[in-house]
Amino acid sequence: MREGIQELLIVIPAYNEAENIERVVNRLITDFPQYDYLVVNDGSSDQTAEICRRNNYNFLDLPVNLGLAGGFQAGLKYAARCGYRYAAQFDGDGQHRPEYLAAMQARMEEGYDIVIGSRFVGQKKPRSMRMLGSNLIESAIRLTTGVRIKDPTSGMRMFNRMMIEEFAGGLNYGPEPDTVSYLIRRRGARVAEVPVVMDERLLGKSYLTPLNAARYMIKMLVSICLIQSFRKRR
């Protein structure tokens, strides 16, 4: 579809990220021209779309808010149609560092289907409520798939061509740990982790309030332990 296309597409879902998106995308454009990027503006109510248009970014402008799963899927449909070999999920708020993408891609080349940028490969998890959640999800995935993923909630993931097609075509493919567990169990996906460092979010507020976090945890645990085992192989 497009001339001079790179191997890796960085998909940046952005919902009301007006304060961060410019910094994140400009960094990618100036320092990492070897990657293509795509901003998915998920029906933001702030200036996100205007900023993308003004800067002439490559972006998808969803007219209504679909949520992370729908927005990310739109990005992967784009990746599938343009024929990218790899697609990476990358946060629009600046907590992911693009310098780790090369290491992740190198790991991909070894024949993995999913590579997760992991905060805890080399080091121990700090003790906090959030890490308790992370541990619970880790155990649930280990229990159901036998695979140990140390940082299942990391939002920095890379997918190969086969996984891109899965995400683009299917229903119930949120970019979340439960989908990873499904892909391991039913699609035989091979998962690797690469150590990364993440920054704290600089501007704008996170959706991760304690109530949302609890809701997320329950959804993930029920989904991984119960629902994913009912799903059919496509």
Partner: peptide
């Protein structure tokens, strides 16, 4: 909801394609 999601995604993809063509 699935149908709506598909429609919205198609709209955005089409919009992006047209913009790139114009460019």
């Amino acid at each position: 909801e699935t149908k709506l999601k598909t429609l919205v995604q198609e709209m955005a993809l089409e919009d992006n394609r047209r913009r790139r063509e114009e460019e």
